[in-house]
């Protein structure tokens, strides 16, 4: 019983301190944030120039780029402060997809859906930072 109480204690502590770092005793915080019905919904993603000359949307999956969109967003602050981290994503794409066109320049993009009364009003797309792949 002591073991069970300890487990529950850790779990409650994780939620009370609201810290994902305590995983598995982390807060159950998926979708726990509130979205203002008259606010906006942001989604970040990457675009890239490739060595075949096209500008493409980078598939935001771990199997393609090593990172899913949620992880790009979780580390966005670091990437904005130091865009050279994007080099790691370009290198990983080369390793994971050797037969595909490789990235020569990466762009961090933001798609913002502006809401009105809980429904989509309009969409804005913005380029935030970019990185010349070495």
């Amino acid at each position: 019983m002591a073991a069970a109480v300890l487990g529950i204690g850790l779990l409650v502590y994780g939620t009370a301190t609201h810290n994902d770092d305590n995983f598995p005793f982390a807060p159950m915080s998926m979708f726990a944030f509130r979205t203002d019905p008259n606010g906006s919904i942001d989604a970040y993603y990457l675009e890239a120039n490739t060595d075949s000359g096209a500008r493409v949307k980078v598939p935001m999956t771990r199997n393609a780029a090593g990172m899913a969109r949620a992880e790009l967003e979780a580390q966005l602050g670091r990437i904005m402060a130091d865009p050279s981290l994007l080099q790691s994503i370009a290198d990983t794409q080369r390793r994971l997809q050797p037969g595909m066109p490789h990235y020569t320049r990466l762009y961090v993009m933001r798609e913002r859906i502006v809401l009105k009364d809980g429904a989509r009003d309009h969409k804005e797309t913005q380029q935030l930072v970019d990185w010349q792949v070495r």
């Binding site: 994902d20 770092d21 305590n22 995983f23 982390a26 999956t61 771990r62 199997n63 393609a64 780029a65 090593g66 990172m67 899913a68 992880e71 979780a74 580390q75 981290l85 790691s88 994503i89 290198d91 990983t92 390793r95 994971l96």
Partner: peptide, 17 residues
């Protein structure tokens, strides 16, 4: 897809506690 993340260089690894 954990195998995909494992291919990332260490500078994007943010180990939990």
């Amino acid at each position: 897809d954990v195998k995909g993340t494992a291919a990332l260089p260490g500078n994007l690894y943010q180990p939990v506690l």
